[in-house]
């Protein structure tokens, strides 16, 4: 297997005085999908935000293609090939769909797929007809597509997705899963935060189960599906 594109080692993070992550480690290779599973408050979102550099207080090592990024501001991390799609999507509601995409545009990067609005409209046909619509006036599912498309405009090598399936209709979720598998096929590394094992199960190769900001279980998705005991222990009712 190829070398890891993203390595996280002994990551600790805090919000104010509250410690959210403790000694978190994982790695991710190109063309691989890793799902962080856990309940609300387990630290999934914080992990993604810490990788991007959006958590003020953190400690530990984060390497992208062997380059240490733990001290860098978010825009530098993004320019090194980390794309982040937050849970609440955070599309720029006053900008049109097309403008949202333009904001995400970065120069092409060697070794990763290069995206253009045209190519993205091919991937998300629903957006094509909406390109001049203010992004605040498109549906939730369309906003999720836009959020992913906007991040892809930066030609990332690693895509961090925070509960992308949440609040979407089942049909849209199916399309999303298919899209993510397609991106993986293009060689992108995907880091997924999920509560929904059903969705993660069809997309992810490996899983980390988080609880209280620690990794409790680490393994392949296939193994977890074969023996879901860890999932039941840490996720179920």
């Amino acid at each position: 297997m190829s070398r890891a594109i993203l390595e996280v080692e002994a990551l600790d993070a805090w919000y104010g005085a509250a410690r959210i992550l403790t000694d978190l480690s994982f790695e991710l290779r190109s063309g691989e999908v890793l799902a962080l599973l856990g309940r609300n408050g387990a630290g999934k979102t914080t992990t993604l935000r810490a990788v991007v550099g959006l958590v003020a207080r953190r400690r530990g090592r984060i390497r992208i293609a062997d380059r240490e990024v733990a001290g860098l501001p978010p825009y530098r991390v993004a320019r090194l090939g980390i794309g982040f799609v937050p849970e609440d999507r955070r599309i720029f509601s006053g900008l049109t769909v097309q403008e949202n995409l333009e904001v995400g545009r970065q120069p092409p990067r060697a070794g990763v797929p290069v995206w253009s609005p045209e190519r993205l409209f091919g991937l998300f046909p629903a957006l094509a007809g909406l390109r001049h619509r203010p992004a605040g006036r498109i549906s939730g599912g369309e906003q999720q597509m836009l959020a992913i498309a906007r991040t892809l405009m930066g030609n990332p090598a690693v895509l961090l997705l925070d509960e992308p399936a949440e609040g979407l209709a089942p049909r849209v979720v199916d399309h999303l899963a298919e899209t993510l598998r397609g991106l993986k096929g293009e060689g992108l590394a995907l880091l997924l935060s999920e509560q929904n094992l059903a969705f993660a199960g069809v997309v992810a190769d490996r899983v980390c189960i988080l609880e209280q900001g620690r990794v409790l279980h680490h393994g392949t998705m296939a193994a977890l599906l074969a023996d879901p005991t860890p999932a039941h222990d840490h996720l179920a009712l």
Partner: peptide, 24 residues
């Protein structure tokens, strides 16, 4: 212009703009 669009984006949500690689 792309510059103006980025300014509007950063006005609306500076954190998200930074996460998209925009140097505030």
């Amino acid at each position: 212009t792309g510059w103006g669009t980025r300014v509007r984006a950063a006005t609306e949500d500076p954190e998200m703009a930074a996460a998209l690689g925009i140097d505030q």
